[in-house]
């Protein structure tokens, strides 16, 4: 049965909540333990970016049971947006003195990755992973 969970993100503890919900949904979807962890990891990175750069936003986790079983995560905020998306997707680039691996890392551990961001318009990141 397809399911959807929304978690409002505006403080650090919300990251853990979002991560746990994502892991639950991934387990219900039939993902193996390692993939559950990688999905939780992607949620963690995307939610962390919301807290650090936009202060608040939301994470939507959807399980899909169409032709392919899988999970979709949408991280949305109305923060300052990303000035240079290509740069933000490079390993080691960060404007917040962090490792700069969150966004490229989330992209690597998931199967599909889309980003829509521009200064002043906020950021929406959509990632998907399919059950193998």
């Amino acid at each position: 049965m397809p399911a959807e969970t929304r978690v409002a993100i505006d403080r650090e503890t919300d990251i853990v909540t979002a991560r746990q919900k994502g892991r639950e949904l991934a387990a219900a979807c039939g993902f193996a333990s390692t993939d559950q962890t990688l999905i939780a990891l992607a949620i963690s990175e995307l939610a962390r970016n919301i807290v650090v750069y936009a202060q608040r936003g939301e994470i939507i986790v959807k399980s899909e049971f169409g032709e392919r079983r899988g999970i979709e995560i949408v991280a949305r905020d109305q923060g300052p947006g990303i000035l240079n998306v290509a740069l933000a997707l490079q390993d080691g680039y960060s404007t917040a003195k962090s490792l700069g691996l969150g966004l490229p890392g989330a992209r690597r551990v998931m199967d599909e990755f889309e980003i829509d961001s521009a200064p002043g318009r906020g950021t929406t990141v959509t990632v998907r992973k399919w059950v193998r």
Binding site: S33, T34, Q36, T37, L38, L41, E45, D91, L99, L101, G102, P104, G105, R108, V109
Partner: peptide, 13 residues
């Protein structure tokens, strides 16, 4: 753990 190891590799740490 194996999960954490794969996470770290995925992140490129």
């Amino acid at each position: 753990s194996s999960e954490v190891a794969q996470s770290l590799v995925g992140l490129g740490i």
